Amino acid sequence: MKWSELCIHTTNEAIEPISNILHEAGASGVVIEDPNDLVKERDTFLGEIYELNPSDYPEEGVYVKAYLPINSFLGETVDEIKQAINNLLLYDIDIGTNQITLSEVNEEEWATAWKKYYKPVKISEKVTITPTWEEYTPVSTDELIIELDPGMAFGTGTHPTTVLSIQALEQYVADGDTVIDVGTGSGVLSIASVLLGAEQVFAYDLDEIAVKIAGINAKLNKVDEKIKVKQNNLLDNVDVTADVIVANILAEIILRFEKDAFKLLKPGGIFITSGIIKKKKQDVKNALINAGFEVVEINQMEDWISIIAKKK
């Protein structure tokens, strides 16, 4: 079978929504080529450093690449992807150059092209994320390992917004907690919550593909008995009370349900929000305060913000 490599020249801000669009379109894997990776300091003992070729990377912005089978529907699929990306402008998301190119690759090239980008990565004090095909030995007795297959998941969980979310979960999730994961995607935050001590997690996503993937990843990590994955629009009609609610999602979406999150949290409960670009930080902060929250922590990684709020 022949495959088409779809390359989108865009911005760091648009990586996650575009990745989601590509997966919904049937992409079997997404590669992100960010020039920051060429200069980023890494923990070499985890082995995630790979020989990266600077010529593969743009001087500005990022490349998001996906692989689609070449068939009679390819043209229609690409047109739908282009339209969906253009629609991101309605959410005030900077899509940058938005130059899209197509090139043909054979089966062998496709099978290995994106795997070289994914190695075990320690993303918090306790949590390490590793691709399913990598052999990995924990370096400490309390290390928590999450296995993901980027071919079926929304990335490997190493994007700054996910890292910020897991670092916050590690700080605030306690043994026996109930956690709600809004916009679960690959389910990585739900999995991390259980490994960190949560007794039950309710994972919601509007996308039925994400719901399926989150369920598969939960089983892969042997935590599916404690994670209930359901297709749902944000917190609509949810009546679960939680100790922690986490949402790694666009700022514009967070602003649609911050009051619902306040209602569903127990007194003293924690609302972890991530996926916020810098220019939206104040909007989210103000909305959380107006909903009754106390903002207890604001963290930043690269161009991304996470805000942790507490129900008084």
Rank of each mutant, 00 (worst) to 15 (best):
Lys122His: 06
Ile145Val: 15
Gln99Leu: 15
Tyr204Gly: 08
Leu89Ala: 10
Lys228Pro: 03
Glu147Gly: 04
Leu164Tyr: 05
Ile180Phe: 09
Thr97Leu: 13
Ala113Gln: 10
Asp43Thr: 08
Ala214Thr: 07
Tyr63Asp: 07
Lys280Thr: 02
Ser193Trp: 05
Tyr50Cys: 06
Ala174Asn: 10
Lys310Tyr: 02
Gly47Lys: 11
Arg256Gly: 04
Lys310Glu: 08
Lys82Arg: 15
Val296Glu: 02
Glu109His: 05
Ala291Ile: 03
Ser124Thr: 01
Asn290Thr: 09
Thr132Gly: 02
Gly75Glu: 13
Asn290Pro: 06
Asn87Gln: 15
Ser103Leu: 06
Thr44Met: 04
Leu74Ile: 09
Tyr172Ala: 02
Lys116Tyr: 00
Gly292Met: 06
Val121Tyr: 02
Asn20Ile: 08
Gln282Glu: 14
Asn20Ala: 13
Asp239Ile: 06
Asp142Gly: 08
Pro69Trp: 05
Glu80Arg: 15
Leu74Met: 13
Ala174Glu: 14
Lys263Phe: 14
Leu22Tyr: 14
Val201Ser: 09
Ala25Met: 14
Val201Gly: 01
Val296Lys: 15
Lys312Val: 04
Tyr63Glu: 05
Asp283Arg: 15
Lys279Val: 04
Ser28Val: 13
Val223Lys: 11
Trp133Glu: 10
Ala198Glu: 08
Lys212Thr: 09
Cys7Glu: 09
Glu109Trp: 07
Thr112Trp: 07
Val31Lys: 00
Phe293Gln: 03
Pro17Val: 04
Ile15Lys: 03
Val223Thr: 10
Lys226Arg: 14
Lys222Glu: 13
Trp114Leu: 09
Tyr204Lys: 06
Thr97Ala: 12
Glu170Lys: 08
Asn36Met: 12
Ala27Val: 13
Asn248Met: 03
Ser186Ala: 13
Phe257Gln: 09
Leu196Gly: 03
Val30Ile: 15
Asp142Val: 01
Leu22Ala: 11
Gly269Glu: 05
Thr158Tyr: 01
Tyr63Lys: 00
Ala27Cys: 15
Asp224Gly: 02
Gly157Trp: 00
Ser193Met: 03
Gln231Lys: 15
Ser103Gln: 13
Arg256His: 13
Leu206Phe: 13
Ser193Cys: 04
Tyr57Thr: 14
Ile18Val: 14
Ser103Ile: 09
Trp114Val: 06
Ser55Thr: 11
Ile18Arg: 08
Lys230Leu: 10
Phe202Ala: 05
Asp56Ile: 06
Asp92His: 12
Pro267His: 05
Thr178Phe: 14
Ile145His: 00
Leu195His: 00
Leu88Tyr: 07
Asp177Lys: 00
Lys122Ile: 00
Lys281Phe: 02
Leu46Pro: 03
Thr137His: 11
Leu68Pro: 13
Gly26Trp: 03
Asn106Pro: 08
Glu258Cys: 13
Val62His: 03
